[in-house]
Design a protein around this nucleic acid. Structure first.
Lengths: 327, 327
DNA sequence: GAAACCGATGACAACGTTGTCCAACACGGG
DNA sequence: CCCGTGTTGGACAACGTTGTCATCGGTTTC
């Protein structure tokens, strides 16, 4: 900025005035300044500006498990969209379901003075965020609640969704239903398991531990679980899968096999309708989830001081066929 | 930091020393300082630190079309991974294939003093980046080259891929092959069209304009193109689709139709193997693409001053069945 | 016992920007 | 001719941090 001032033959402050469009600069002078800026390729340092003005950085941090997972990338996109409306930008970080990494990233983002944080929590302890929240940093938890603090949270109706999945299968005559869920320390996984139990109870089915396999899962563990469920003395005729990744692993394991069980998967996914048979899913709008969370965050930034919200987004069953096979 | 100093009864500088782990601080003093830091929930302001030290911000910007597109989210993830190794973070922005928005985002990121920029260019003019590049900002273009400047670029073998797609189809007896491509102003789309032509020539086929339909595409335009190709006096028996989105739209349009044409799609996608028939694709490793680009960027940041590189990543045909149907 | 040295600490300027305040100047009215 | 007024430009401090250098006890060394 000094160089610009020198080249234009004006003072530093005048350049600042021009850059900020403040009134009270002679048009001719402004012209000279702009020319100098152009010639030198000057770009003002937003960091210094924010420091001096004490203003916000116009950046929000998004912490999630893996930006490459379609579920989260849709979420990120929705958040970016909202952020854009508010003139903000998005810093993303993948925690890989590792609480330490999540914490590390969160604190790093705080040190960069993000205006707010959107977190899909991996860990269960979030006490480390208390000082930040206390200092005025808005934090919204998405998809899973914070472990040990109360804060704004936007969830999906995990329980209702799995109850509905079981109901759908029983409506089509299934009595023996298996559940393939993710690691039980993950909130959504345990909620969905709870919903599965609840669904069984409501349908008057006997809840059978043998038919439940929780993760973490890979190709082998899925095949294993499917084999056990097939070889059970009273085998399952249908199954509920706990998230999009498990559903895909299951579909791959079942591909080409005769006598495939009926299936309802939690989470919709692209091409679910093109698989044979088309996959019935419990769908929730990931975009809306991200949008709701981001809007909540920006409402806080705009000064909303009401007590923490806890929003649950609805889910809906999309019947495509895979759940309708008769036992 | 002042508050911490006061609380600990030391000078500002001593706090700075503790925070930075500089030697020469009495352990007892350091203890007091750390206690004060903890009590006040102090977190140093990285912006101010970078300003004073003139050091880098440890942030790189990634500009792409849409973070929600699986192709780009895998790219982002790979970039994030490399960035992490170098202790950097990632600021993402979706340009939505809009050159103005891309420019706006790029300049905004520059004002935030990102250390480098990874760009999947939407526009064709990148002169606006020249001052920045000249000022030492490394920029790597990914998936598409810059319009009017020379810079590091990491591409995919678009031409070779489509040539191979056509060859695969002709090997299986097809003589009439259609091409469904994206908007011709998009580099990858025009390259792939070029490859398609080239493939036809090499196979000794007559290149027929009637069988080529370029985008932008939506559901209706795809159905339209498919209808035209079916109703052609000498109809196509096979088709090549120009990217993952077009492939999916096409699959959906063809679903349930009798007498489906053989198909080879550019870009691999999840579940391609589970569709009936499994979809033969020209695959390229998006992760490697992002990794290569990010590594190039960080090499520049580490001081590599060699002339601009232009890397082309290989593609490979994954035959799954959809390309093998006899005409 | 003085000189030299060491470890611990602090005062101060500076990074690039902007807000506050004042100076210089031209102009018009009395 | 003087004063008020409005327009334009500049000096200076401050944002939160760190690098440089100085200070100040206390200890070792000759």
């Amino acid at each position: 900025m000094n160089d610009v001032a020198r080249l234009a033959g004006v003072s530093l402050k005048t350049v600042s005035r021009v850059v900020n469009g403040e009134p009270g600069v002679h048009p001719g002078t402004a012209q000279r300044v702009l020319a100098a800026i152009d010639q030198l390729g000057f770009r003002r340092n937003l960091g210094a500006r924010n420091l001096r003005r004490g203003s916000s950085t116009g950046t929000i941090g998004v912490l999630l498990e893996d930006v490459a997972n379609p579920f989260y990338s849709m979420l990120t996109r929705a958040v970016e969209e909202v952020a854009r409306q508010f003139g903000a930008h998005v810093l993303t970080g993948s925690s890989d379901e590792d609480a330490d990494r999540e914490r590390e990233l969160a604190l790093e983002f705080c040190a960069r003075r993000v205006d707010g944080l959107l977190v899909v929590p991996a860990g269960l302890r979030h006490g480390y965020l208390v000082p930040e929240i206390h200092a005025g940093l808005p934090v919204v938890f998405v998809d899973r609640p914070a472990g040990d603090i109360v804060a704004d949270t936007v969830l999906v109706d995990n329980l209702g969704g799995t109850v509905e999945a079981v109901a759908h299968l029983t409506r089509h005559g299934h009595q023996r239903i298996a559940f393939l869920g993710d690691a039980p320390n993950i909130f959504t996984a345990s909620e969905r398991l709870r919903g599965f139990r609840e669904g069984c109870v409501r349908a008057g089915l006997r809840f059978d531990e043998d038919l439940v396999t929780m993760g973490p899962h890979d190709d082998a563990s899925i095949r294993d679980a499917l084999r056990r469920m097939r070889e059970h003395p009273d085998p399952a005729t249908a199954l509920v899968t706990g998230n999009n990744r498990i559903t895909v692993l299951t579909l791959r394991a079942l591909a080409g096999q005769p006598d495939r069980p009926a299936l309802v998967g939690f989470d919709d996914f692209e091409l679910a309708d093109l698989i044979d048979p088309p996959v019935t899913v419990i769908a929730h709008d990931t975009g809306s989830l991200g949008k709701a969370a981001a809007e909540l965050l920006f409402a806080r930034l705009a000064g909303d001081e009401s007590p923490p919200h806890r929003v649950t987004m609805p889910v809906r069953l999309i019947a495509r066929g895979s759940g309708e096979k008769r036992p």
